[in-house]
Design a protein around this nucleic acid. Structure first.
Length: 462
RNA sequence: CAGGGAUUAGCUCAGACCGGCAGAGCGCCGCACUUGGACUGCGGAGGUCGGAGGUUCAAAUCCUCCAUCCCUGACCA
């Protein structure tokens, strides 16, 4: 439907497990404490390279790209423009903004062969402001929102929880430039809407909560939190906020009033993290609606006004010829962290349960009796039919026993499984099983293909 | 960064207190048996015991230093 930037989009490649690289572990590596970390290691999605730094193995990489893709689509739907900035930055720009000294030990500082001070970027306000001031000088060029999805590095004292709190992480960060505070607040609202849409598409409920500005600063800021017992933030909210869903409502991102209405709808109820929690306001909520829980932060939006534009001389001329610093905001989504958040929110004791929108493969095909002519032929036919429809199955064609194949499929969390065995084939049927409910239904192979295609059909058109 | 713990086979871990031939389960390879939930049996490969130094006739084991990883806390997308 909409055209989106596809530099990071990888085609979905159907796969026979015997040819794939899926190093699943039966036992849990001892370093993993929380469920998402354990399952990502066990499902062969990531491998730790050093503390807080991970290699993304094929299965994890596929999910990472799917999440990234949703973010790209929703950003561009909102009118934001993709680009790419480097991971390594010069310290000079950071001296200019004053943050080279402020940022502290969390910033990984590097010296190159000429003894120049460099750093592995933890964020990109300085770089983007430098780009802006070099090329934009007129109010006529505004509004402008640029974003990228890039690896960042923050030298956490104590990385933990796998990709949830790594030192190296993949993040979307976007920056809006506007001529006035009002215009910048519309950009803020636009981001809030686009984030709500993004998280919902990933099968997550992420609640916007009033946040603290932190080192980036900012008068207006909300964090988006996914409720999960393993979350690092304590959160307090009115249970009415969890009833809100964005759904498939139509949004005109240029409609100021409409975006403002969404912001009000989603942020008027009490919802705060412990950083900004206000006991008196919380207690004003009817007692049966007061909730205390834990949450995983998966994004944050800021309006910080002219903090960087003033420090770095990013100005535009207005219609009456005056030079004014631009109003800016920055807006982040933790892409790599989202894998952990989704797993925390969607798993059982057997493994991951992927939402259809981010699953690494659309469905699994389990051949219960590899080598049986009929079973092999039926599986091949299923694989071909699904692939021909543009679907992306993972066919377990290994000479494993049924139990091992089921255990692997459950662990890696494909939402649908087609089970093919001689017993069913005698009656002309295979079995379609939902990972989420565990419910199975017998049907002809043709019907199974049709049903899986139908499940994914709405997404295929986007 | 403070406090604590760990490092022995690909993974999970015994062995260390009390120095004396390097171990188990799972995984892997081969064979057999099997094919609806990690089945069973037989055979096999795989480790300079994190690194360096020291004590000793002899060190995975005792001592010193270093490195890495993990946990709790403070910090943090």
């Amino acid at each position: 439907m909409i055209a989106y930037f596809s530099a990071n989009h990888f085609p979905e490649i159907p796969m026979r497990l015997s040819r794939y690289f899926l190093p699943v572990l039966k036992e849990t590596p001892s370093e993993a404490q929380i469920v998402s970390h354990r399952y990502m290691l066990r499902a062969g999605m990531i491998k730790q390279a050093s503390a807080g730094i991970y290699s993304w193995l094929p299965l994890g990489f596929k999910v990472l790209k799917k999440i990234e893709n949703i973010v790209h689509e929703e950003q561009q739907r909102a009118g934001h423009i993709p680009m790419l900035m480097p991971t390594i930055q010069s310290a000079d720009l950071w001296r200019e903004s004053g943050r080279y000294d402020d940022y502290g030990e969390e910033m990984l500082r590097i010296t190159d062969r000429h003894n120049r001070d460099m750093l592995y970027g933890p964020t990109n306000e300085e770089l983007i402001t430098d780009i802006f001031r070099a090329h934009v000088g007129s109010y006529k060029d505004l509004p402008l929102t640029l974003y990228h999805i890039q690896w960042k590095f923050r030298d956490e004292i104590r990385p933990r929880f796998g990709v949830m709190r790594g030192r190296e992480f993949y993040m979307k960060d976007g920056y809006n430039f506007d001529v006035s505070k009002d215009a910048a607040l519309h950009a803020y609202n636009r981001h809030l809407v686009s984030y709500l849409r993004s998280y919902e598409r990933m099968g997550l409920q992420a609640i916007p909560m009033r946040a603290d500005g932190g080192p980036i600063g900012g008068d207006y800021t909300h964090e988006f939190l996914v409720l999960a017992d393993t979350g690092e933030s304590e959160v307090f909210y009115d249970s009415a906020v969890t009833d809100l869903t964005f759904g498939d409502r139509d949004i005109d991102y240029d409609d100021v009033a409409q975006c403002q209405a969404v912001l009000e709808e989603f942020t008027s109820r009490y919802a705060r993290t412990d950083e900004t929690h206000d006991e008196a306001l919380f207690n004003a909520i009817p007692e049966d609606r007061r909730r205390t829980a834990r949450g995983i932060e998966v994004g944050q939006i800021f309006y910080f006004g002219t903090k960087y534009s003033e420090a770095m001389g990013a100005t535009v001329q207005t219609a009456d010829g005056k030079s004014v610093p631009v109003h800016m905001g920055s807006h982040g989504i933790g892409v790599s962290r989202l894998l952990g958040a989704i797993i925390e929110a969607s798993h059982d004791d057997k493994g991951i349960i992927w939402p259809e929108s981010v699953t690494p493969f659309h469905c699994g095909i389990v051949n219960l009796k590899q080598g049986d002519a009929e079973a092999d032929a039926a599986c091949d036919a299923l694989y071909q039919s699904l692939t021909a429809l543009g679907l992306d199955p993972l066919y377990d064609d290994r000479s494993e026993r049924a139990g091992g194949k089921f255990a692997t499929m459950d662990l890696i969390g494909l939402p649908w499984r087609i089970t093919v065995g001689p017993r069913g084939l005698k009656n002309g049927v295979v079995e379609l099983t939902s990972r989420r409910t565990g419910e199975s239904e017998e049907m002809t192979p043709e019907m199974a293909v049709e049903k899986v295609a139908k499940i994914y059909a709405p997404r295929a058109s986007m």
